[in-house]
């Protein structure tokens, strides 16, 4: 339906412009804005196209976080998405602990994206709402609460309601979790879907031009023990108490939102 509507508008505007040999520049600007909107809807704003991107682009084309974000975006367009009585939400530990359990119990599912941190539970509220049937198992570890949220996740995060943006942006800026330019980037990405989906456009070009053949990446399993330890040491050094307050504020936001949606939330680890 969305595609048909966008194509119809595109046709009408094109017909109007075709008929008018000379148009005022103001009317051309207005037509340009309408056409741009249609392009965005056709290329990034409908379920079938997102599903195509999801099928075409794998984590070796666009990266782990981007691939899982794309998968979650595709879910948002699903009409009959199953809802689970218990939805375990949290970082990779949640994934490790609950995936096997969820396979055996159909009323349980896991919501996780690559490199998930506290900020992501806010950014992916829509997706959580679609999946949750009533009870959210929120897994918070001291590791999650004391680390700085990853900036990469902010720009590619799914579209947020304006109300969330109005609360989240000043809160993040005040907390010092994000720099001004990072937040600016986030707002731009929210305003211009094409900018948010740059990872898709670039991923498609890289796939067509076989970037992974030109620059084969080393998979996580190829990392040696010394390197893995180094990664772990870096992550531990990055933990700081100053992030704790800001992250707890984000958790409070999430709890308020969950309560307003009528969800029960059980915090199952990390009682700091």
């Amino acid at each position: 339906m969305t595609i048909i509507l966008a194509l119809s508008i595109l046709g009408v505007v094109s017909f109007y412009l075709q008929r008018r040999r000379r148009a005022s520049w103001l009317s051309m600007v207005i037509c340009g804005i309408i056409l741009y909107g249609c392009f965005v809807v056709l290329i990034f704003g409908n379920g079938p196209i997102i599903r195509i991107y999801k099928r075409l682009l794998k984590h070796w084309n666009i990266g782990w976080r981007q691939a899982s974000t794309l998968a979650r975006e595709a879910e948002l367009y699903e009409k009959d998405l199953p809802q689970y009585d218990f939805l375990a939400v949290g970082s990779s530990q949640t994934y490790a602990l609950y995936t096997e359990f969820a396979r055996k119990h159909e009323e349980v599912s896991v919501f996780n994206i690559a490199g998930m941190n506290i900020l992501d539970i806010i950014l992916y509220e829509n997706a959580i709402e679609r999946l949750s049937g009533g009870h959210i198992l929120l897994m918070l570890s001291d590791f999650d609460l004391c680390r700085q949220p990853a900036v990469t996740g902010l720009r590619i995060a799914p579209r947020q309601p304006i109300t969330t943006l109005m609360v989240l942006v000043p809160q993040l800026y005040k907390s010092g979790l994000m720099s001004f330019s990072e937040l600016q980037d986030y707002v731009l990405a929210q305003l211009f879907p094409g900018y948010r989906y740059q990872y898709v456009s670039r991923g498609l070009i890289d796939k067509i031009l076989r970037k992974n053949m030109a620059f084969p990446s080393t998979g996580a399993h190829d990392i040696g023990k010394a390197d893995a330890n180094d990664v772990m040491r870096k992550a531990l050094r990055g933990l700081h108490v100053r992030y704790l307050k800001a992250n707890l504020e984000l958790v409070r936001n999430f709890l308020t939102w969950a309560t307003s949606c009528g969800f029960k939330v059980s915090i199952i680890e990390g009682g700091v």
Binding site: L17, M28, Y36, F39, G194, Y195, R202
Partner: peptide, 18 residues
């Protein structure tokens, strides 16, 4: 007018997406 609008819109679109 059609050529002008399409040209500018595609340029803006490419600028934003790539």
């Amino acid at each position: 007018a059609l050529g002008k609008v399409y040209c500018c819109t595609i340029m803006v679109f490419l600028l934003i997406t790539l």
